[in-house]
Each structure stands twice: as C-alpha cells, then as structure tokens.
Computed example of a mutant assay.
Amino acid sequence: MRYFLDCEFNGFGGALMSLALAPEDGSEDYYVVIPLEEAPEPWVERHVVPYLRSVPDMLFNQLDRVAAAHDIARYLSTDPDPEIVADWPEDIALFCRLLLTAETEIVDISSLRFHFLRTPGFSTARNSAVPHNALHDARSLRDHIIEIEQ
C-alpha cells in the first residue's frame, strides 16, 4: 500500500521535527513529533511549532528519535510491501535517516519502496487544513494524488 509522507524540519537541512504517513486507503494515519535538541529557526518557530499539536489527541505521539524509528517500523510491519510517496526529496531523506538508530544499526523493517512525485503548481501547505503540520500536509498530498489519478 502507498503511504503519503510529509515531514517538518528545522529549516533547510535541519533536524526532523515531525513526520506523518497518510495511507492511501484512509486507514489510521501515523504522526510523530521528535523534540528538537536545538532552538528552532525563527521561521519554523512562527510557522511550524505552533501547529505541532494540531492533530487528534489519539494520533499525537512525541518520541525521541530512536523510539520514533522503532514506532514507524511497527506501524509499517503489517504491510508486506509498503511504498512511501513524497513530493519533496528532503522528506524521503529525513525518513531514511530516521530508520538508522546507530552508526551500523537500522530498525527491523524488511522492505520499503519510495516514490518521489513532483507536483508542479500544487502546494501541500496551501491545500492543507493546517499548513505546516506534517499530518495535515500528508493528507493533503494523498488527496491531491488520488484525485489526479482518477
């Protein structure tokens, strides 16, 4: 199954702050917030931080980086062929880096596929119910891609 990915991070090249996966079939979404070890960039402080909790309480999950990696592996563990879809290359890079739990360790995940889709003229933030919230942006991406495929 496809999972539409969005991440929020602390400025260009910055640390991962939140990650969301919105499954194409509308089943339970995944959302995690990873506390920053440094102060957020000013733009991030204004446009991202205030919206990190703007998700249903049952989906809000705050974990350290290693715990988040294991949690994502558990979330995807029942799918024999998960495909992660993103419209921004840094989201894929952040997702992959998160799976590394130590210098030579990776979470227990058997296989993953990634699909990068350019979405010219479409902005997840402009079309999101809560702009710059990874969960709402991932849902926006999912809805857009499914709509244009029909």
Rank of each mutant, 00 (worst) to 15 (best):
L5A: 02
P80N: 06
E45Q: 15
P89A: 05
E45R: 14
R2K: 13
V130F: 02
L21P: 01
E103K: 14
R53P: 02
L19N: 02
Y3E: 00
S54I: 00
D108M: 13
I106W: 13
I84H: 05
E41F: 03
E45V: 01
P120S: 13
R2Y: 08
A134N: 03
E24P: 07
E105Y: 08
R139K: 15
D57T: 13
L19C: 08
P50Y: 06
C96N: 15
H132L: 10
I145V: 15
T104G: 04
L63H: 07
Q150K: 14
L100W: 10
D143E: 15
P80C: 10
A67Y: 02
A125Q: 13
F95D: 02
S18Q: 00
V33W: 04
A102V: 05
A69L: 13
L117N: 07
E38D: 12
G13H: 12
V66F: 02
A125F: 00
R139H: 08
M1C: 03
L112S: 09
I84W: 09
P42V: 01
G121P: 06
R53Y: 12
P42Y: 01
F4E: 01
H70M: 05
L21R: 04
S27I: 13
P42N: 06
V130R: 01
R2F: 05
D29K: 10
P35I: 07
A102D: 14
F114T: 10
P35M: 05
A134F: 00
V107A: 12
G13V: 14
L21I: 09
V66A: 11
A129L: 15
A15K: 13
Y30S: 01
L112H: 03
E8R: 01
I72M: 14
D64L: 10
E90P: 00
N127Y: 05
N10Y: 06
L21A: 04
R139V: 08
L16Y: 02
A22N: 07
D91Y: 01
V107G: 07
A138K: 01
G26I: 01
V32K: 07
A125R: 14
P82H: 09
T124Q: 12
E8C: 01
E38T: 12
S27W: 10
E45L: 13
D137I: 00
M17Y: 04
D25L: 09
W43E: 11
Y31L: 06
I146F: 02
T78E: 14
A138S: 06
S54H: 04
P56Q: 08
L59I: 07
L117A: 10
L94Y: 15
E149K: 12
F95Q: 03
S140Q: 07
A134V: 02
V48D: 00
L52R: 07
T104D: 11
P40K: 10
R126K: 15
T119A: 14
E41L: 09
C7G: 06
T101V: 10
V55G: 04
H115L: 15
R126D: 15
E41I: 05
E149W: 08
M17C: 12
S77C: 14
L141Q: 06
E90F: 11
R118D: 15
A15Q: 14
N133M: 09
Y30A: 07
L19G: 00
N133V: 13
G14L: 06
D57N: 13
E90V: 12
R126G: 09
E28H: 11
R118A: 15
V55C: 05
R65Y: 13
V107C: 10
D29Q: 08
R2C: 00
E103M: 12
N127T: 06
R74P: 00
N127S: 11
A102F: 04
A69G: 14
N10K: 07
